[in-house]
Write a protein that binds this DNA or RNA. Structure first.
Lengths: 335, 335
DNA sequence: CTGTTAGCGCGTTCAA
DNA sequence: TTGAACGCGCTAACAG
């Protein structure tokens, strides 16, 4: 490895002059600067970021703690994060916790040891000891899509309640008055309860009475969507539309409908939530609430950068808007 | 930040003794070791990995250069990589190149500057200057799924030719004699040409003449699959089965078939390649050649670890087996 | 504008 | 078994 010392010796000047020249400090003679640059090029010099970080106490690395990179949802958010980080000179250390709480803690510790300048945390719920661990790392932390705001942790998320209501209102405007709902786990404070609440409020706004018989709980898997849909079909009167709390369950519902010979969207409209790639591949393409995945990542990263660079935050909680993507499962025209 | 010096002062002993105690060196008095451990705990000491790396010249970080983390294919491989890396004490720096050759070079340089111990490279083809850049970083590099072996770069990949042949043979055994092929770009030395070659060889083995009329080139997108399929339907005699070089195009083909009122698998069998999550969501679920995605990642990481730890490599090229996953698009039973 | 000195936190000699 | 001293590669403070 070739160091600043080498190029200093080569040029018969001092190491710190080399440092200044390479870092574009003011007050370096143009000719010196040029000679240094030339020598660096010639000797194939590569700065040692580790040493620099040790000296400056800034690593220009951010940690990303995530529960499952193989999930399209997280993968897209990650892309938004990496892109903004890189554009600002930061590298990203990827930590996949596989929803393991012990791993979460270990990763937070590891990242702190590695002197990261900041951390983005997007791994499941926030139990008390995880909150404690987050407070324990000295660097700024931003959480995505979780209930961090209630702990005073900077957060970016979507308004699950309002977005769910928007989707249901859309169905109502289409003329549907009997709308089944396939919920996620109701103990999920993120995508479970709030989306159910949104469903209810949209009905209420339209003066449609809430009927618990056409609300079925699933667990966000395709299989649970199929089962929930089958139960919905037994309700009397039968719903004319189904809203599911995520795409997977909506797709499961469409499969169940197909098995029962019910045609989408002619006999049943279906709407999902998330807008993963699955939604446009399934037949017919699924109408769905599109989360701004990349934006979740980039916004969180921008917040983190503000914190790391000592600029304040406007709001410790940012709520992003979604978009209803209408496809042929809901009366759209399809491809 | 609290350092070894702090705990040394606290205990009235020397800093290097603390270092030895913390690193479980032999020849440290048990009582000293215990006092140090206790003080470290009490003061909430956290080792500074940067400083350690600078001193030992090993960072325990690997770089991952990838072309698109939002693609399920790469995301799953990445999960395999992260998992093995973490299990061996390595962290992963994620670099998403977005297929930008300039970014590839920049990232390789960046990683070298960060003193990573090794790099896994999985970003598109290997043009000459990228090969040069790879040779230029001093740490070991392993490539995945690319033609690195011909440059002497350690590689793990699948046998695209043989796996494609396997899928086509399966169709032949099912009784199909007229099998259309939707290829990828034929200038793609990875998934383009080899898969076409596999298609041809399977036909030849079965004594079926090759007919260029029922080979249509696509570009791995769903839309191109639709167009290619439409062209295939004009061929006379019309094929009874279609093999596509990836899932996306196979799904596009299924969409085109649906538009033409052709039922899958009754009137047409369809087989894809890759086994992304899309394959089991589409209707009917797609038969496809399943690449061992996680294994690609974990195998590459294991190779890299051998290299980083100075153990040799058995083979500089490892070829993994795929598996044909039969689903209802091809005579399976469906869900 | 440049050289000198000191130090970031840790590991590793070499003596004692 | 422990202490003292030095070095990893780089930045920063202070002179000059």
């Amino acid at each position: 490895m070739i160091t600043m010392k080498d190029i200093a010796r080569e040029l018969g000047i001092n190491e710190s002059t080399v440092s200044r020249a390479l870092n574009n400090h003011p007050h370096v003679h143009p000719s010196t600067r040029e000679r240094v640059a030339e020598a660096a090029r010639r000797l194939n010099y590569r700065p040692n970021t580790l040493a620099r970080s040790l000296a400056t106490n800034r690593s220009y690395v951010v940690g990303l703690v995530i529960s499952n990179i193989a999930n399209l949802f997280f993968a897209e958010v990650t892309q938004g994060i990496e892109q903004v980080a890189d554009a600002n000179g930061y590298s990203v250390i990827l930590c996949d916790t596989a929803r393991d709480a012990a791993k979460e803690q270990r990763y937070l510790d590891l990242l702190a040891s590695r002197q990261v300048d900041g951390i983005i945390f997007m791994s499941g719920r926030l139990p008390a000891d995880t909150v404690a661990a987050i407070r324990n790392v000295k660097c700024p932390v931003v959480t995505i899509s979780r209930d961090g705001a209630s702990y005073g942790i900077p957060t970016v998320r979507i308004n699950n309640r309002a977005e769910a209501a928007r989707a249901v209102s859309y169905l109502i405007n289409l003329g549907h008055a009997r709308i089944g709902f396939i919920s996620g786990q109701l103990d999920d404070a993120e995508s479970g309860l709030p989306r159910l609440a949104g469903y209810k409020s949209a009905l209420e706004d339209a003066g449609i009475p809430f009927d618990p018989c056409i609300v079925q709980e699933g667990d966000f898997t395709m299989e649970s969507g199929m089962r929930a849909c089958t139960r919905l079909l037994d309700a009397a009167p039968r719903p004319t539309a189904i809203f599911a709390a995520n795409d997977e369950m909506a797709i499961g519902a469409m499969k169940a409908l197909a098995q029962h010979g019910i045609s989408v969207p002619k006999d049943m409209a279906v709407v999902g939530f998330d807008n993963t790639a699955l939604a446009r591949v399934v037949t017919p393409p699924l109408t769905t609430v599109a989360q701004p995945l990349r934006a979740l990542g980039s916004t969180a990263t921008e917040m983190l950068i503000r914190l790391m660079t000592g600029q304040g935050l406007r709001d410790t909680e940012v709520v992003l808007d979604c978009q209803l993507v209408v496809r042929s499962s809901c009366g759209g025209t399809g491809i």
